[in-house]
Design a protein around this nucleic acid. Structure first.
Length: 275
DNA sequence: CGAACCACCTGACGGC
DNA sequence: TGCCGTCAGGTGGTTC
């Protein structure tokens, strides 16, 4: 569900409200949520205060005093919600964190149970984060061209590869390629400087617009307050099979690439010359 | 290195 | 109504 713009929206909404919060206790309702459980258990985090929040790729990181951190991945259906402690807790809530100095609690809810939480001690290695490529919005023109152009795979698969750039998922990969006018099956290594520059501009503008609209809500995504994003109304191709392209009117097509549904305009994104 | 396929898990929806 | 297949904002492992 959540890609970079959705996680960014969640983190921005969370930060002003839980920064400075002191964790009073955590209730783990579905133990497999924890990846590499801390030896002392979640009790080790009681009394810790939240020093900051950040996003890395599609991960939400809650930083705690003493160099500790809680790293969440929401995968397809994960949600981080703030709720009054007396609000009903449904069966999909996997973790509840209470604060001693806040009148709301943080809940991690995840229907499909793909999401996870890593609890980090000071200096603990986090392979999940260390494996990630750079942030697309912090990557300069030359670095971007080197990262993308140096790959042999099809451009859609390259954009989805978190080791290349962190945070782009299935929706935004399609929207970015449409904006750049690049067919999803184009081998990345065949893109010249001009098209790589166009791809970088498209990446920046799509991600920034999506963040400004607070992400895309197709099925499950909501922010920490339970509010939906609005960028789905701006989607040019994703989920629009058979509908007219907003730019040229041709019917949007759907194919399968890297095992994922892939939408594109056959006229605005021309077939690559196959080698 | 890359691509295809399965796995993880639950729920919604369409067809019959 | 119910059963069955298909699909879903993600990733990791296996196999060719």
């Amino acid at each position: 569900m959540p890609e970079l713009p959705e996680v960014e929206t969640i983190v921005r909404g969370l930060e002003p409200r839980i920064k400075g919060g002191v964790i009073a206790g955590m209730r783990l309702l579905w133990p497999p949520l924890l990846r590499r459980p801390p030896e002392a258990g979640l009790a080790a985090f009681e009394g810790a205060s939240v020093t900051g929040l950040r996003r890395r790729g599609k991960h939400a990181v809650i930083e705690l005093e003493g160099g500790r951190a809680l790293v969440f991945h929401l995968k397809m259906t994960g949600q981080i919600l703030l709720a009054r402690p007396d609000a009903p807790v449904d069966k999909h809530v996997r973790l509840v964190a209470r604060f001693s100095n806040r009148d709301f609690e943080l809940r991690f809810r995840d229907v499909r149970k793909f999401g996870y939480l890593c609890c980090l001690g000071p200096g603990a290695p986090v392979p999940e984060l260390d494996r990630l490529g750079p942030e697309p919005l912090d990557t300069g023109r030359e670095a971007f061209a080197a990262l993308i152009g140096g790959r042999r795979g099809r451009i859609k698969a390259v954009l989805l590869d978190q080791r290349v750039l962190a945070g782009i998922g299935n929706i935004y990969a399609d929207e970015i390629l449409f904006r750049a006018g690049i067919h999803p099956l184009t081998p990345a290594s065949t893109l010249g400087a001009a098209r790589l520059a166009a791809l970088r501009r498209a990446t920046r503008s799509v991600l920034r617009s999506a963040i400004a609209r607070k992400g895309s809500s197709i099925r499950d995504y909501v922010d920490a307050d339970g509010d939906e994003g609005g960028y789905q109304e701006r989607h040019a191709v994703y989920g629009r099979e058979g509908a007219p392209c907003r730019r040229c009117g041709a019917a949007v097509r759907r194919i399968r690439v890297a095992g994922r549904s892939t939408f594109f305009c056959p006229r605005c994104q021309r077939e690559p010359r196959l080698v």
